[in-house]
Design a protein around this nucleic acid. Structure first.
Lengths: 340, 340
DNA sequence: GTGAAAGCGCTAACAC
DNA sequence: GTGTTAGCGCTTTCAC
């Protein structure tokens, strides 16, 4: 039976309010009273009951992070960033996974009901602008991450997908590559990270006056390593000439890297490869992987910041759209080939 | 202002108790009453206030998972397994990271106080048997994971470290390797995954009548990829002959793999490598990595099961020590070398 | 089958 | 500076 405020107040010989004052750092408590109370707290090993506090205050100090899956390195690193940012503000993070298909994503959104969190960070995977009512129906302030829904009902933090992909593609072009595979595009997709990155790829080719060959746009399933490997195997079997790969995330790139080398092609000499996300791992592949750092850490920080603002309610201003800057990181998989 | 039970009862024209009965599937409610109540709930978009429910019931339906860091693939995969197991039992998981050193681990344990969770799964990194009072001081039923504390104050689920490492080493021995590096050992460590795996390594060598060479025991820092790479660079600079590596986790193995290949050594021809953990990624390295599947998924399931038993309080029996079985998974990094 | 009412532990308005 | 007290929304005992 854990001790309550009441127990503490009795032991310290003061009222319950005084104990509460001490706990909440209310300044006007005499030093001697404070000492008595602290002694009682420590003797009883008292800890506040957070459920009671939440009930009373209407705040839980917990936020939810909705992501497709934690096993993906990108989301693990994102979750880590979010937890650090949240912890600075005294918030805990409850992670909820929804998998990789639209049905389970919808179902998690609909069934989570008011899970008694103060706010929600939701990394959209498959939903679209037309699903905005599902998002508006969430029972807590929400900030969207990801790139499928713009002008949604809530604040939104995103990365510069098109610009990043454009820079990645331009880098390969500068290195003299002309037959560049876009790995991870989904046929006909215009929104979402895939669609936007594909647009950036096209822009770069156009700007350089290089023909766009639809056969070089290789779909990448759910962007896992196996998808990258599988897609490249299939692509290689079609004997289409190529000398570079812009992969739409690092995991795809690493899968492709493996397959390309398996076939005896050298990276970067025969095929230059660049990914997207700057996962820890890209520093340790053979060769190390060039990539776009899309600003995952900044995204987490801005998102938590915006969410806290909404939670505090101090700010009922216009919905914000924030795009954080990206950085191009060149490593071995594209190096030493300038001017070829 | 969210609707309360009271609002619902008023709209449905019944008492608050009846609404509560409907929500909690109490059987003796007439169909017509139930229908009225459900209609009111849906009209008001009512969701129970979990804080109030927790305050009243003393249960939060949340468990904490304490791990060193989510960015490590192993812990991301473990967290995923735990969340799935927990979700089957209606529990949410609050992940708390404590980093990689003893001080922060202790500090998180001490300061988390009664964070109002029903139970705690704690993956021990640096604490030892002598720290058992810190663990006993946790304010909720706890199940330990990992391999530093046996005969602790709580249930404990572990993997077969020594047996797994022994099997891994034996595999290389069977392939004719005699100069096998133990990567990730910490000098003088006897407890913990590192100490146990090193013991298994020694056992295998002894059983095969192969001399143990202390110079082949290479420390691996915090078992990250960079540690594996760094340790192997240093080891290679010392020109000690070797033909195999038993790495104490997959991440170390992947870091080592990279460095070994960088130096022009062929895997598995010149150096056979085997890891530990069966990370998703080991299927996609070049070459694919042989490894020990230590049963991460089974560990998560058993741990949640044990924790739930303690939470329900139905069972105050003896503390349990559970070791889940392991599996050896042979891939390219050790293949084609039998009998060399 | 349904209703009235107590109380979980805390915070904060208000009184002294 | 400190004490009293109402009430957050829910579950549950006990009447009816």
């Amino acid at each position: 039976m854990p001790a309550t405020l009441h127990d503490v107040s009795r032991l310290a010989g003061v009222s319950i309010k005084t104990v509460s004052n001490v706990i909440n750092d209310y300044p006007y408590v005499s030093d001697s009273t404070r000492a008595k109370v602290l002694a009682a707290i420590s003797e009883l090993d008292y800890t506040p009951n957070l459920s009671a506090r939440s009930l009373r205050s209407g705040r839980t100090n917990v936020i939810s992070l909705l992501i497709p899956e934690l096993r993906s390195a990108y989301f693990a690193e994102l979750a880590d960033s979010v937890m650090r940012a949240a912890s600075k503000r005294g918030l805990s993070v409850l992670i909820e996974q929804f998998g990789n298909d639209r049905e389970s994503e919808l179902s998690v959104l609909r069934n989570r009901r008011g899970r008694s969190v103060d706010g929600i960070l939701y990394s959209v995977l498959t939903l679209e602008e037309s699903d905005r009512d599902v998002i508006a129906g969430l029972k807590a302030p929400t900030v969207l991450l990801g790139d499928r829904i713009f002008n949604g009902p809530t604040d939104h933090v995103t990365m510069q997908n098109a610009e990043g992909a454009r820079a990645a593609t331009s880098l390969l072009l500068e290195h003299g590559r002309r037959r560049i595979v876009a790995l991870g595009s989904h046929p006909g997709e215009v929104v979402g990270s895939g669609g936007l990155r594909l647009a950036g790829y096209r822009e770069a080719l156009d700007a350089a006056g290089v023909d766009v060959d639809e056969r070089l746009m290789v779909p990448g399933g759910t962007w896992h390593r196996a998808d990258g490997a599988q897609a490249m195997r299939e692509f290689l079997s079609r004997d289409i000439p190529f000398d570079g790969i812009v992969a739409f995330n690092d995991t795809l790139a690493l899968g492709a890297l493996r397959v390309v080398q398996e076939r005896g092609l050298r990276v970067p000499e025969d095929v230059a490869i660049i990914g997207f996300d700057d996962l820890d791992e890209t520093n340790y592949s053979t060769p190390t992987l060039s990539t776009i750092d899309a600003g995952r850490d900044a995204i987490a920080q801005r998102a938590v910041e915006l969410l806290v603002r909404r939670i505090e309610g101090a700010d009922s201003s216009e919905v914000e759209e924030v795009a954080v800057p990206f950085r191009i990181i060149e490593r071995e998989s594209t190096s030493l080939t300038r001017g070829v």
